[in-house]
Design a protein around this nucleic acid. Structure first.
Lengths: 155, 155
DNA sequence: CCATATCGTCAAGCTGGCTTGACGATTGCC
DNA sequence: GGCAATCGTCAAGCCAGCTTGACGATATGG
């Protein structure tokens, strides 16, 4: 059974699989903690959307473009977050067709809380890994994101 | 606008967000490359299932337990992979009620191809990061997975 | 001033990935 | 031998997260 040995050997040593698994587990825990802290049914899709909203407000179409989905899909996410009171739609002074999606006061507060949760987890991360490894991880993750985005841009 | 500064500052420095983003981008690229290479519509759910299948075969109920889903859900994934010719159901000699889910010859080949893709990407990773960082990343990812699994086990 | 493009929304529908419920076949225990 | 428990399957349905299509309102360039 030549397959078996090779398979087992490869399973064990994949950095990528470990990385994927680690990220997934951490992400799930982060979401769970944020929900507990801000007491709102925030889902993964929402946390994907939020970082793309500029503090001065962002148009729905632009959000959709950044997320790589249709404007209807983005609109649905915004609807939900608006219903929770975290986002607001304001008329765009530069274009009466458009609206600016921006954070409500409560939304900003919740965002800070959420980021606080992330900070807590990062503090734990540093405790677990040690300062040197934590710094290295930050540097590596940034490098990977840069590389992937460069590939995406290059097509 | 006290919020704005704090928000911007925190956005930039989150290791976790970078890690999540890097993992997601890498994962998407890995899936795309595998599909291209083995020319089958393998999805994320499938790649989650496959590592849990022992080479000598695994019962459906056991697979479901390992995945943390119902046996029906696991059965559906197995159905799809069986339809692609990657898996087979064999009667379990130890229990006439049960069947052993195992890889077909083609499935083993495809699995090796898929793992080969991962290996290619890891080689690129090493080129990008350098040997020292790549090794550190592997070590860190393994530590994170261990930690998360320990937390999950502890409840 | 009109044609055309863009902004956001309404409506309907699809797909993946699950679930609950029920069932026949087979097992192992008393 | 009888009976509860377990194995896998069939059926139906739910929900998130999208999509396509159509539409009124507004903007813009010729």
């Amino acid at each position: 059974m030549a397959y078996a040995d090779e398979l087992e050997a490869q399973k064990a040593r994949s950095t990528l699989q470990l990385l994927f698994r680690a990220a997934r587990l951490l992400n799930e825990r982060a979401i769970a903690r944020m929900q507990k802290r801000i007491k709102l049914p925030v889902r993964v899709a929402h946390t994907t959307l939020l970082p793309h909203i500029d503090l001065q407000g962002t148009r729905l179409t632009e959000l959709a473009r950044r997320l790589g989905v249709t404007k209807q899909a983005a609109g649905q996410l915004v609807d939900e977050l608006e219903a929770m009171g975290l986002l607001e739609r304001a008329p765009d002074p530069a274009d009466a067709r458009a609206k600016l999606v921006c954070f409500s006061a409560r939304g900003k507060k919740a965002l800070l809380e959420g980021l606080g949760t992330l900070q807590d987890m990062e503090a734990e991360l540093e405790t677990l890994l040690g300062g040197a490894d934590a710094a290295t991880l930050h540097r590596i993750a940034a490098a990977l994101v840069r590389d992937e985005e460069a590939r995406a841009a290059a097509g």
